[in-house]
Each structure stands twice: as C-alpha cells, then as structure tokens.
Design a protein around this nucleic acid. Sequence first.
DNA 1: ATCAAGAATATTGTCGACAATTCAGCAACC
DNA 2: GGTTGCTGAATTGTCGACAATATTCTTGAT
Lengths: 227, 227
Amino acid sequence: MTAPLQDAHQDSRTLADQVVERLQDDIVLGVLPPGTKLGEAELAARYGVSRGPLREAIRRLESRKLLERIPHVGTRVATLKLEDLIEIYRVREALEGMAARQAAENMSQAEIAGLWELLALHEQQQDLQEDTAYFQRAGDLDFHYRVIQGSHNRTLIDLLIDEIYHRVRMYRYQFSMTANRPRKALAEHRHIVEAIEARDGEMAELLMRRHISRARQYLEERQRRER
Amino acid sequence: MTAPLQDAHQDSRTLADQVVERLQDDIVLGVLPPGTKLGEAELAARYGVSRGPLREAIRRLESRKLLERIPHVGTRVATLKLEDLIEIYRVREALEGMAARQAAENMSQAEIAGLWELLALHEQQQDLQEDTAYFQRAGDLDFHYRVIQGSHNRTLIDLLIDEIYHRVRMYRYQFSMTANRPRKALAEHRHIVEAIEARDGEMAELLMRRHISRARQYLEERQRRER
DNA sequence: ATCAAGAATATTGTCGACAATTCAGCAACC
DNA sequence: GGTTGCTGAATTGTCGACAATATTCTTGAT
C-alpha cells in the first residue's frame, strides 16, 4: 500500500534484503527490545512490505540467532543471557585466535600499515578522553574486524561476521557496556599487531586468545556477582 | 541424523521443514550434483509443495552455504573446491579444539563411557575389515559429533553442526573420500578420550587440533598434487 | 559472417486470499 | 474448587496469480 513511493530504482537489492537490514538494526540497537513478540502483519505494515519478503527476512535473522521462532506460535526477539555471551566468547577465543594466526601469515603490508594507523587513532582518542566509551566500543570492534578480514579465510570471515558479531553488538548496546579496561586492551592490541608484523602466527594466536579470554573472565566475574 | 532434538512426535513439522530435510539430503548425498541449476517451479513439483515453503527451504540451505543464490537469476547447488575445504578445516581445527577442551571440563562420566564404547566398536569393525571405508567415514563423524556435543556449549554445537558439518559430509560423499589413515586416526581418537577422561582440557584441545591439522595437511598435499 | 539492438520468453520477486493450527476463555463435570 | 473439554478468535502456514527482472532468440545492419 505504501509501495509506489520508492520504486526500486535506488535500491537494486530485493525487498527482503532491505527488510533484513532495517529489522536487524532495530534489533541490535534495541529499538525492538529482547523478548518482544513480533506479529508478521504488524511488522509487514511497519516496513511497508507484504508478508512474503518479511517472512524471508525473519528466516534470515532467525538463522543468525537474533530471532527465536516457534512454528504456529510466533517470533520474538532473542533474549541474550550473560551465560550465552560467555559461550560466545569461548567461540570467539577459538575463531579469532585462528584468524590472528592466519592474519600473520596472509596479511599484506598495506593492511598491516592500516592496522597501525587504526591503533594510532585509538590512542589519540584515548588521550583526548572525548566520548571515550563510545569510540572505544566501536574502535574495539573495528580492530577485531580488520584482523578477521586479514585472515583472508572466507569461511572464517563469514562465520564470525554473520553468526557471531551481530550478537556481540546487540549485547553491547543492550547493556550499554563500556569498555572495561581500555588502556590494557589497547596495549594488547598493539602486541597482537607486532606479532602479525613479525609474521609470527603462533604468537598472534596466543595473544589474541589471551586478549579475548580476559574479557570472558571479566564476564564470568560479573556473572558471579549477579547472583 | 541432523535433528535428533525434537523428533519424538508425529509429522507435525511444517512443510518447509520437511523440504529442508529432503533437499539437504539430496544435496549432501549427491543426488543433486554441485552446480545444478535449481528452478523453483521444478523443485516445488519435485517435492509436492508450493513455491512458498520451497523458497523458505532454499533460504535456510543458502545460509548453510549448501546453495548459492543470485537475486533475479536463480539458485544452484554450491560447488565445494578443495581450497574451500581447507579453509573449513582451519575453522574445524579452532572450533573442535575448543570443543575438546570444554568436553574435558564438562562431559559427564556416562558420556565418557559412551565414547569408550564407540571406540571399541570402531576397533572391532576395523579388525573385521567389513565395509571398512563406509563405516570409518560415518564412525569418524560419530566420534567428532559426540565430542562436540560433550562441550555442552550450545553456541559451539550449533555452529559446528549447522554451518560446518553439512559441507564436510557433502565433500566426503562427493569425492567418495575414504578415510586416509584409519589406524592412526583411531589411535588419535583414543588419546583424545584419555585426555578428556583425565579432565585435561589443554591436552584434549592440543590433541584434537593436531588430529584435524594432520587431515588438513593431507588435503593440502593432495591440492599440490592436483596442479 | 559478425555483432548489436530489440522483442519474446522464462524465471524470480511480490502480493493478497484462504486453510490449518494454537491459545484463551468459558462452561460443564468430577 | 479444580480440572477437563469445547468453542471461537487470532495468528501463522500455504497457495495461486500477477509484476518485475534477466536471459535468450530473432532480426537487421555493417
């Protein structure tokens, strides 16, 4: 009914793709809080599409574990418990460790230089102390994204980006989770890049695993405190 | 095989679910060879459903990387290159290593006993030399499957089962890949279970990683020979 | 003969309507 | 009073038809 406005010339993508993107943002950014019941008719109206493309979008986000669906009952926004996040960090430890190893083997000199620039930018922002929390969260993700891409392992990249990182982002927004140990984290990032630059895959993996393992231990600490 | 979770009741599953299962089997077992162009109307007729549920099934298998889809063009069965399989084995090395570590921490005594029984069965089959290739392939998957489950890490389990193992199975059927070093593999399996039983997570992870790494090196050897 | 442009065809994307299933509420019974 | 079975309202699952897009084939010119 609201279709004729944007006649598919700007976005050559399919309607379902656009809905996936918008719906995912609404979930990750918390516009649709965890546990929200999602009626198909309601959502279809919200995004101005029919139920067909909408259902397709729901399936995609379900496979990314952002939605939970029960046949004949309905769909709701996934509720991420701290326990789940700890499980995810175990997976991150394994996968990003391997990513760092392969990054040390496969990254180009230009990519490594880009990493150094990124770290310099982070350091500068930290000195200025302006909006530190926000930039540090985004910056941390930026760093990890780049190392993952640097592995040049398409399977690994897709797994981390499509299946893992959306949930990590959702959790961070949901709990307004500020970086818990910014200076130490930045120092660890630097050591990882040093190992990558030295083409020491084993060391890069070890350092990345310790880096993520420490973040997990912080979560486990918080979990113990919560009960 | 892939859905032992909720199979207790009748066929009350949705049509799309049934199509997913049948279509996935046809792909993994090679009934639909890699590269096959899949017309929606044709497939809908083949499985006796409308295009609606069929499209849903296609999306699910696309997200599992068993199908490749191009908007407005069509869907075809994914072609798995040896290069892709090597990437997958890197991911397996990381993820199953972590699975073995957590299995050593979390497996129950009953589960460990079950692992020993499984190994005894494999040994017996190997002595008899009956249909060794087939049983060894399935048996190897069984072993890894159980260790994965033993991690008691739902995120890790879902990742490996839903995103990785279907492609491994597809490749094995596709190339009639016989186990390349059965006796050694069985011995390595035993050592892994010993580490799990001793609750030595670090050792279990190390052994599992070496186990999978060796299989990857065999694939890389084969890759070099192919050109 | 080769290539380009345009029409014809086939396939996918989208939509609205109908059927099947679940859940809430109510009534009757133990 | 609590439980069980029924009824209906609402939501999801499925289907067939129509619109939009890509591919193929024809036709004409160089």
